[in-house]
Design a protein around this nucleic acid. Structure first.
Lengths: 112, 112
DNA sequence: CGGCATCCTTTCGGATACTG
DNA sequence: CAGTATCCGAAAGGATGCCG
């Protein structure tokens, strides 16, 4: 068996570094599935996350081009919307693969 | 890191928790590509890792059923071989997806 | 409404030394 | 050869409070 990458190294570790944060996948998937969301909506969608963490992880995702942020400086309470970029959405097939891997795995009787 | 009560979402976060360690992907991929390896061979294959870390990460992978360990209690110096399980090998398609995502991304002219 | 700054806790990665 | 046992520093995660 040969390595399946065109180069010698697999970029999977890089991908993991990019979306390996505790909440990044959840955030991304909410945005991919539901489309654009406001900050508060994301909080509701992922109740266990704190605002601090949500902000941090969103900043990371934004910096890496997986999520984009749109600010609507409305009256006093500003409105901020987030959505997945094309790059972000492009991760779907990988997620799907992980999903089917998980499902297959659940069915196989593993010895503890 | 395990609750993720939202059962409607992908298990990708769980997958990441399982193989998100700093060296786990490298180890897994070496075992997938090269097949069975001894402890010392893994060290050589991943020079930057220390024995402590290699042991730890291997234990995790073993506990999660992605790697299996075979001990050959030979004479004094025992021999231990590691190899990827079927479950572990089954992650290949996901890695491939990540790879092509990465390649596509590199080619796409992203606005800064 | 969003979000930055601060501080604290937990987890992770790693160096070193010792053992069967 | 292939570990386990400690100990430590760094980093990630998280709670709280103030601000535009």
């Amino acid at each position: 068996m040969q390595d399946y990458t065109s180069s010698n190294l697999c970029p999977a570790p890089l991908v993991f570094a990019m979306i390996g944060g505790k909440w990044k996948l959840s955030i991304l998937q909410v945005l991919i599935v539901d489309g654009t969301k406001r900050f508060g909506e994301l909080r509701k969608a992922i109740p266990a996350i704190t605002q601090t963490m949500l902000t941090k992880q969103l900043r990371d995702l934004e910096r890496d081009g997986l999520v984009k942020r749109m600010i609507y400086a409305e009256v006093p309470p500003k409105k901020v919307e987030y959505s997945a970029t094309e790059d972000g959405v492009g991760l779907m097939p990988a997620f799907k693969e992980m999903h089917s891997w998980w499902e297959t795995r659940k069915r196989s009787p593993k010895a503890p």
